[in-house]
């Protein structure tokens, strides 16, 4: 059982790494926002939507439906709200 206890150390290390990553996100978040601001919604749409499956055309859904679909994709693909907002803005404009 003592051997089993040793495994705790690995996961304490894992948790520490996750915490460190989040802290890094916190420190660099402001810089990230400026970089992201340069990317248009169409580019973000192309970059993120094709990563898992085929891209549907903007006319596939209504504006209201896109709002739901983009939120669904935001949570699944770990997008920031800024990225999701830009993509949604593009889809509505192109619809």
């Amino acid at each position: 059982m003592a051997i089993i206890r040793k495994s705790y150390f690995k996961y304490v290390a894992g948790i520490t790494c996750l915490g460190a990553l989040l802290a890094m996100f916190a420190l660099l978040g402001c810089t990230a926002s400026r970089q992201l601001a340069a990317k248009p919604g169409a580019q973000l749409w192309g970059e993120n939507w094709g990563r898992c499956h085929n891209i549907r055309t903007p006319s596939s859904y209504s504006d209201a439906q896109w709002e739901i679909v983009v939120t669904h994709m935001r949570t699944r693909a770990n997008l920031t709200s800024d990225e999701a907002d830009k993509i949604l803005e593009f889809l509505k404009a192109a619809n």
């Binding site: 996750l18 810089t31 990230a32 992201l36 693909a77 920031t80």
Partner: peptide, 16 residues
């Protein structure tokens, strides 16, 4: 808890 962030041209995603 989950989310993502961009740092320059590099993106990160996380979930716990």
């Amino acid at each position: 808890a989950r989310g993502g962030i961009s740092m320059g041209s590099i993106r990160f995603g996380y979930a716990a």
